[in-house]
């Protein structure tokens, strides 16, 4: 199986070395595989299998269990619109409909350009700031249909290299679950969590 670029391979080795048991590294390595190709390809999962010492089928059994591991492309910007109970009570279904219209796809699909994917999500833990949504898992609370449309338009026009929760909250958000107090300029570069050990965090001001 083909290896990843050396920087990613090095991250993989560091992650594996942390755990008492190699197999425990499957989940973080699946995120590394996603950061390489945007979603999980057979080659990506095969590399994870090789590094951890299990079969590709065993890797797929894990990947297919969790909603954040994407087995198909989901676009450069993945919009997850929460429609669980607290968000539903405050109008999330209208937000989702507005997003479907504006992106031009149904929930679960990607636009023709491969730029924006849309999904409805189960509870994302932002109930106090309902309705809430995420772009590449970066959170925006207190959204409404109009602001959601503006956000899609902004993604299309600005095509930010990095999507940053604080920036999006200030541009399109409303009442949050709790006071965020300080802002940070880091964010996500693809449809997977922005997290330092995965090498997926970038500064948006650089």
């Amino acid at each position: 199986m083909s290896k990843w670029p050396e920087a990613t391979e090095e991250r993989a080795r560091a992650i594996i070395a942390q755990y008492p048991n190699r197999r425990s590294a499957v989940m973080p390595l699946l995120y590394l595989a996603m950061s390489e190709e945007g979603y999980l390809t057979e080659a990506g999962m095969a590399r994870v299998a090789e590094l951890v010492g299990i079969t590709p089928a065993q890797v797929l059994s894990v990947a297919s269990f969790y909603t954040m591991y994407k087995l198909e492309p989901v676009g450069r910007y993945l919009i997850s619109c929460c429609t669980s109970i607290s968000c539903m009570l405050l109008g999330s279904d209208d937000v989702l409909h507005a997003l479907e219209e504006e992106v031009g796809v149904a929930s679960g699909e990607v636009d023709s350009e491969g730029l924006i994917g849309l999904e409805h999500a189960e509870c994302i833990g932002a109930c106090g700031g309902a309705p809430a949504m995420q772009v590449n898992y970066e959170l925006i609370e207190g959204i409404n249909p109009e602001k959601a449309r503006q956000l899609v338009e902004w993604l299309r026009k600005a095509r930010p290299e990095v999507v940053n929760t604080d920036e999006m909250q200030s541009l399109f958000g409303g009442r949050p679950s709790f006071d965020w107090a300080i802002t940070e300029d880091v964010g996500a570069v693809g449809p997977y969590p922005a997290y330092e050990p995965f090498g997926t965090v970038r500064s948006s001001t650089e």
Binding site: I124, G125, Y137, T165, Y195, E196
Partner: peptide, 14 residues
């Protein structure tokens, strides 16, 4: 930490 909490995870990792 749940995967949908990248900001909390970044803070804890730091």
């Amino acid at each position: 930490i749940r995967g949908e909490y990248p900001k909390p995870a970044r803070r804890v990792q730091q």
